[in-house]
């Protein structure tokens, strides 16, 4: 008779101590944190000016752009998609921002206009990827091109200066809390905490993980996979907009070449932070550590008076090493 006799033999659960160690090691934040401390320790010894409050605050300020946009990119990655359009988006949103501020002298309207553009771009990316099913790498490469071309077309390849000269706008990118911590760092940190909370403690965040981890299971659990992914692209668009606003404030204008290659920097940090390209794995804190490692590294190498190009070389090497280590770990454990 057609009788299948499969059954599993009982496997004892791993001992609690071993399981905990395994879980600890599996969390990519721990090795990342150690790496960050090693980087900081190394440069503190190598340079006297590295470990000063001022310098640390500066690095945090510099990392704010990648951190802010990185939150969105990481969320898209976790949902199992890719977003590389952020490099052009940070430049594109500066245009409505500056143009509307110049016309209305209102920071509020300027920011609203910028966010509107970010929302539209996120929605277009999300619609094409999630609803039409076009590979999101292709979609966002496409919008990367289109937005950059659009910026060149609109600006005629020059910068549009900020003529409203609002003090509040200047403060966004250049002000410091208590004269020390740059506002961008503060903004990025608040956003990081907020979205980390969402990803961990709101049903939406868990849906993002589920959709990226196993879309079929997520669908069976009653989630709308498309809607969740769509929302992730919108979040990414809006966060890249915030990064773009901070950048425009720092530059004091809408610069057509702003953010060239920024998408690669962000993707590198996100991947370094242990967020998997295949979806469902990774955390925003890991991403933040990835950004910080790269920022401190770049700052430290600069202090050692090494050519800035070394930073690119070292960063590239570190990314390969980190991802290779991650892969190795996954196969071993």
């Amino acid at each position: 008779m057609p009788q299948s006799l499969d059954a599993a033999h009982p496997v004892p659960p791993p001992a609690p101590a071993a399981a905990m160690l395994k879980a600890l090691f599996r969390r990519s934040e721990i090795p990342l944190l150690i790496s960050l401390l090693v980087v900081i320790a190394f440069f503190s010894i190598a340079s006297d000016t590295f470990l000063t409050t001022r310098n640390i605050a500066n690095v945090l300020g510099q990392s704010a752009l990648a951190m802010t946009a990185g939150i969105g990119v990481a969320i898209v990655f976790i949902s199992g998609e890719v977003d590389v359009s952020v490099g052009s988006l940070v430049a594109a949103v500066a245009i409505p921002l500056i143009v509307v501020m110049n016309a209305t002298e209102s920071l509020f309207l300027g920011i609203a206009a910028a966010l509107a553009l970010g929302l539209v771009v996120g929605a277009v990316n999300g619609y094409l990827s999630a609803y039409l099913g076009i590979n999101s790498l292709i979609v966002t490469l496409g919008t990367l091109f289109i937005l950059r071309g659009g910026v060149y077309l609109y600006t005629g390849q020059t910068a549009i200066p900020d003529e409203a000269m609002l003090e509040s706008f200047f403060q966004i990118g250049n002000g410091r809390l208590l004269g020390l911590l740059p506002y961008p760092a503060l903004i990025a940190f608040v956003l990081l905490l907020a979205f980390a909370y969402v990803m961990r403690h709101r049903p939406f965040g868990r849906q993002v993980y589920a959709v990226g981890g196993n879309p079929e299971v997520a669908r069976l659990a009653g989630y709308s996979v498309k809607r969740v992914k769509f929302a992730c692209f919108i979040i990414s668009g809006l966060l890249a907009t915030v990064a773009g606003i901070m950048l425009a404030s720092r530059l004091g204008s809408a610069v057509h070449v702003a953010g060239l290659g920024f998408e690669f920097q962000v993707v590198a940090a996100v991947v370094l932070g242990g967020v998997s390209l295949s979806g469902g794995i990774g955390s925003l804190f890991g991403m933040a550590l990835g950004v910080l490692i790269l920022s401190f590294l770049s700052n430290g190498l600069g202090m050692l008076a090494l050519a800035t190009e070394w930073q690119l070389v070292v960063t590239g090497g570190i990314i390969i090493a980190a991802v290779a280590f991650d892969e190795f770990k996954r196969r071993r454990i």
């Binding site: 981890g213 299971v217 659990a221 009653g222 469902g280």
Partner: peptide, 30 residues
């Protein structure tokens, strides 16, 4: 209950039990 396992392997067992609807408390937190 499908034959192929329909669970998110990265989640805890408890979360998978409540995968279809995470119970939320005040302010919508899980």
């Amino acid at each position: 209950v499908f034959q192929e396992i329909a669970l998110i392997s990265e989640f805890t067992v408890a979360e998978n039990i409540f995968l279809e609807r995470h119970p939320v408390g005040r302010a919508g937190s899980i």
